[in-house]
Design a protein around this nucleic acid. Sequence first.
DNA 1: TATTGTTATACTCTATAACTATA
DNA 2: TATAGTTATAGAGTATAACAATA
Lengths: 163, 163
Amino acid sequence: MARAAESRTPASKLRADFPLGERTGYLLHKASMVLEEDFERALAAVDMKARDFFVLAALAGDTPLSQQDLSRLLGLDPTTVVSVIDDLERRRCVARKRNPADRRRYILTLTATGRRALAKGERVAADVEAAFLAELDRTEQARLRQALSKIMAERWPAAVVSS
Amino acid sequence: MARAAESRTPASKLRADFPLGERTGYLLHKASMVLEEDFERALAAVDMKARDFFVLAALAGDTPLSQQDLSRLLGLDPTTVVSVIDDLERRRCVARKRNPADRRRYILTLTATGRRALAKGERVAADVEAAFLAELDRTEQARLRQALSKIMAERWPAAVVSS
DNA sequence: TATTGTTATACTCTATAACTATA
DNA sequence: TATAGTTATAGAGTATAACAATA
């Protein structure tokens, strides 16, 4: 009697005969999912989630940000921002200060702990990205970044790259 | 008294001072999200979801697929496949036939209705993708696809492109 | 004893609406 | 009257475990 492994469709056969897998759009979708899995897994070792890292990175700049600013910059729902900042505040990575010019708003600031966490996350991000792009040479990597930057310039102006 | 619009941080200021937005990994993440939103919105006009389209496209090949095959090929949880196929079967797009060689498994087949739905989805996908990539010339588009294909070749062999 | 498909269920994630305090 | 932030809650999406049929 045939073993299950023999009746199962082999991966090699699945691979062929799937033209969708050659479409740039689907490749982009899958590549993004794989990268996010890699990144979440790597960050988990440092007890961080990707979203925490994005928030910390956004708050590291010189422009003081409110929760609404974060919401718009990262594309997060304002109610989601509340819980993310709640968590980062509990972990002493972020502090909420009232904005004296408009007491409805906070000014979110990174603490020293937050800066250390960000530094850890940046190392993880750099490593994961390097591994993810390892099959491309420097020129290909630069072209990929520029192509994505060009596409996103229209859709999300924050992504415009100067070089 | 200052209007809210004046105290709000302007988008132009948010854009600057966010180095994460220049990282290839983050650009890839955001680009994928934007593309998916575009695609879901466009497909909704044809009463379809992206996942339905992926499943129909996978079933259009010559290789007969079971639900487990679909699960592995598209990276969906087997229990998710059940409900997706349930839905597509209700809509007469897909039919479940028992595999005579192994009566635990189905052979999933596209109906004529399913092929028509797939054709509609393919037009939508082509349009959305073209608009998304519009800022790139043909060479840049080809390079982008090849770069993503190269990256995914290691991680998801289904994505290998011959050209 | 293992696998395919199924169900029930729990869990996470996100979005909606209503509230407060400030403007 | 409008906005920033908060809370409670509902909804969608996903995953886990247990089960029936078949191998």
